[in-house]
Design a binder for these strands. Structure first.
Lengths: 120, 120
DNA sequence: TCCTCATTTCGTCAACTAACGAAGTATAGC
DNA sequence: GCTATACTTCGTTAGTTGACGAAATGAGGA
């Protein structure tokens, strides 16, 4: 039950769901997500932490950068089922579609340039 | 997105999840659920309201009694998918198993006797 | 070594949520 | 009609959550 509730709580916030969906097309670093979600880095970091705790997302540290990706084959079945459901459920969502567009341009830029964004 | 979040928020509370699972084996009235969950009637009523808003549960009024059941064929696809996932995900949960046992005895009693319970 | 900077942790505040009991609504039975 | 009662609504309270900025952490480069 604890594992199940960790997942549903993680999924019960719009920001986290948007982050999940953004990761669908591949790994992103925190600054990409900050750029997409337009929230303070500390806030985004916290949200990703919740997703990691629920085992929906995996964190990979690479030097100064933290990369996040959807949980893979090693994830618990419950988390994998949840991911499958979420990603199909939101296929046609408008918010998600808008994010996907912005993501396309964000992915183009390199990390250094992006990181500079969250000063302003 | 709003519909999706209504569902995940409804599923992110242990009491509501237990109520959902209890309804799996058929309709129950509020007093059954009060007996099972051991919370104030007003609290249980509120929880069921959240589940109904999310379209996971349907309410049927019969005289003084309110009967609740899992959403059926008329429910939105998103809610039905969610129900399918929840009910399979919690198949082996210990809390749920304990509830199932208590439910078996609760279902045996008639409504009048049950309702009297939640005075004491 | 020292500085820079991406990220995380911490402390705080406002908003939300779950719990309760009291009061309100509505129905069955007299 | 009147009463008892099953449920819902309302108001209050305690605990949780999400947001931020400031400070801490830790890796890369001068």
């Amino acid at each position: 039950m604890r594992e199940f509730l960790a997942i549903t709580k993680a999924l019960s916030d719009e920001t986290r769901v948007r982050a999940l969906r953004a990761l669908r097309d591949g790994e992103l670093c925190l600054c990409h997500l900050v750029g997409l979600l337009e929230l303070a880095p500390s806030t985004v970091s916290k949200h990703l932490d919740v997703l990691c705790q629920a085992r929906l997302v995996e964190r990979r540290k690479d030097g100064r950068w933290a990369h996040f990706r959807l949980a893979g084959r090693a994830a618990p079945p419950l988390a994998r089922q949840a991911l499958r459901w979420v990603l199909t459920a939101l296929k046609d969502d408008v918010t998600i579609a808008r994010d996907a567009k912005r993501l396309a341009t964000l992915r183009g830029r390199d990390l250094k340039e992006l990181a500079a964004c969250y000063k302003s």
